[in-house]
Design a protein around this nucleic acid. Sequence first.
DNA 1: ATTAGCACTCAACAACCTCGAGTGCTAATA
DNA 2: TATTAGCACTCGAGGTTGTTGAGTGCTAAT
Lengths: 344, 344
Amino acid sequence: MDMDSRKEKILEAVVLDYIQTAEPVGSRTISKKYNLGVSPATIRNEMADLEEMGLIVQPHTSAGRIPSDKGYRYYVDYLMQHDQIKKEARDYIQESIKKKTTEVEETVNNILDILSTTTHYTPMMLINEQQADHSLQLLQLLPLEAGRALMVIVTDDDKIENRFIQIPPQFGKEDLELVSQMLNMHLKGLSVDGWQKNVLENIFSQLQRQKQVVDSALGMLAGILHKNNNSEEKIYYKGGLNMLTQPEFQDVGKVHNILMTLENKEVVNKILNNNNINEISVKIGTEHDIPDLQDCSIIVASYKNNGKEIGKVGLLGPKRMDYSNSMAVLDVLLKDLNGGESDE
Amino acid sequence: MDMDSRKEKILEAVVLDYIQTAEPVGSRTISKKYNLGVSPATIRNEMADLEEMGLIVQPHTSAGRIPSDKGYRYYVDYLMQHDQIKKEARDYIQESIKKKTTEVEETVNNILDILSTTTHYTPMMLINEQQADHSLQLLQLLPLEAGRALMVIVTDDDKIENRFIQIPPQFGKEDLELVSQMLNMHLKGLSVDGWQKNVLENIFSQLQRQKQVVDSALGMLAGILHKNNNSEEKIYYKGGLNMLTQPEFQDVGKVHNILMTLENKEVVNKILNNNNINEISVKIGTEHDIPDLQDCSIIVASYKNNGKEIGKVGLLGPKRMDYSNSMAVLDVLLKDLNGGESDE
DNA sequence: ATTAGCACTCAACAACCTCGAGTGCTAATA
DNA sequence: TATTAGCACTCGAGGTTGTTGAGTGCTAAT
C-alpha cells in the first residue's frame, strides 16, 4: 500500500487537528474542516489504510484517530510546511536578543526565556566550554601580608584569574616582581604546549632562590591555561512548568517523572548530544531512548557563534507539539544569534 | 469552653494522625490507636467541643475530623514535642555540612540539598549581602597593551575584584606603578567613608599628570568597597517537585499555581522576610497572606554565622507537614552552621 | 471509485444503589 | 455527674446500570 496525495492530506489533517485540539480526530471532522471534497466514508476507508500502515492509531474502537510516532515522523519529514513565524514574534525575538550580556550564564538565560515565553515548551541548552588552550597575556604576583601573595593571570581572551599563593615569609616585593617579570617575559603569548623545556630550565636556573614559588606559580598557570581537562559541558533548562499546562500531562505522577528526569543533567546532556547532526533535528516519542520522556518530542539545534558551534539548544514538548512553529522560532533565534543570515 | 488535658490529648491525636495518614480522623481510630482509656462516644463529645472551639473541622458530615489552621497553631504552640531528630539524620547533616566551600552559591546549594533530602519539603533561602563597607587591602594597576590596564583590588575579606580600565596611550608602566603606590599608601586599610578630603587632594596634587586615571580608578574602587547600594538580597529555592509527592497536591492546576508562585522571587522574599523574628517561626495556611500558598505552611529560621544573621532559611510544606521533625532538622542544621552549640 | 445507509462499539456521563465509616443524640449506667 | 452503649442518621466512595453520541466498518447502490 502506498501513500498518495489524498492519504497525505488526510494524515496531515489528523496531525494538525490533533495538535490543535488534543482530541482524537474523526472522519466527519476532517470532511467538514479540511475540505478534501470527499465524504466521511471515503475518509474512513483511507484512514483504515493509514492505520494499517502504522501512521495513525485508534485509542479505542469508536474513537477518532491520533498520529502514531511514525505518523508524526512522516508529517515532519514530508508534509510539514516550514512556516515563517509571525512578524511580531520575530520582532520580539530580535528585540530580546539585543540585550546581549558579557556573562555566558546571562545570555543563556535570556535565550531560554525567549524560547520559553514564545513557544510555551521547555527549552534547554548545552554550552561547550572553549576547548582550545589559552595563552598568557599577563602574569603578576602581588605582595599581600608576609607569607602570602596574590597571583593575577590574564589570558588571551581577557579572562582574569586570581589565586592566592603561599610564599616564604622572607620573600619580598622585589622577589615577586622578579619572578613576575621572568615568567612574563618568557611565557607571554604562549599556551602550555608552547613551553619549551630549555626555556623552563632557563627560568629555573635564573630563579634558583625563588624556585618553590616559581614551581607553584607555574603549576597554577598551567592549570588555568590548559582548559582541555576541566572543560565541562554546562547544562541549563527552564520552563519545566510549561509542561503542566499541556492537557496530556494532567497526571501528577507522570509530570513528576518528567520533571525529575529533566533535573538529571546527564539525561539532558544525552538528549542534546545524542544526535551529532549539524542541522536541526527532531526526535519523536520513542525515537529517543529515555523512557520517562516517551510522551514527549524534542527538537535539537546547533547553537553557533560566528559559524562555530558553541552549544546546542533543545526544545522539549508533548509529541503533539507545534513542530512547524517551534522549528521556525528556533531557526530565527539561532540565525540571529549567529549574526544575521550568514548560516547556509 | 476551656481546653482541658483530655481535649488537648484528643487534638494532638487528630493532628498527629492526620499528619501521618492524610485522612480525616474518626473517634474510633483515636480510641483504638491512642489509648486515652475512654470510649469513642466520649471522644465524640469532646470532638464536638473542639469543633465548636474552631480547632478541628469536618470536611463533610460523616467524615472524621481534620485540624483547622487554628488547630495546627494550638498544636505547634502548646502541644508539640520538640523532638530530637534521629541520630543517623543528625550524622548525615553534620557530614554534609563539612564540605564547606568558598562560594556562597555552593554553600547555599548544599544547605538546600540537605534540607530537601532530609525533609522532602521545599527549602528556600535568602542571603543578605554583606551590608558593611569593605576596606582596601591591596590595589594594583597592571599594564596590558597600550591604552589599557587591569586594576586588581583585594578587599579586607580577601575578595578579589578585577576591572579593565582605559588609560592614555602614552601612559607607561612607571605611571601605573606610581599611581598604584600612591593609592595604596594613602588608602590601604580604609573604607570609603574613611577617605579624608585632604588625603584625596594630596593624591591628586601629587599625581597631576595622571589625574584622569586616578579619577576612574578611585571611582571603581569606591564602587567596589561601598557595598550598601548594590546590596541585593539573593533568593534561592529547591525541591519544588517534592510538593508533587504529597497526596494533597494531586491536582495539576493547584500544583502549577504553587510552583509558579515559588518562581516569583518577590513572593519568596516576602515569605522569608515577612517575620522579622529572631527565633524560628511557623506560619500556617492563611496565617501568611499569599493566596496560592494557603494550603501550605512555612517554617522560617534565621541563618547566622558567628552569631550574626546573614540570611533566612525557609521550609515550605503542606499544612499537614511534620512540624516537629522539620523544626528539629532546621535547628540542628542552623546551629551546626553557626559553629556548634554557641547559639543561646 | 465513491458514498449513503446501517448496525455495531465503546468511552463518557449520569442516575442509582449499596456499603461503611463516622456522627449526634438519648437513655442507661457507674 | 461523667461515661458509655445503642441506635438512627448522614454522606462520600465505589460499583452497577442505562443512555447518549461520536465514531467505526461493512455492504450495497450509484
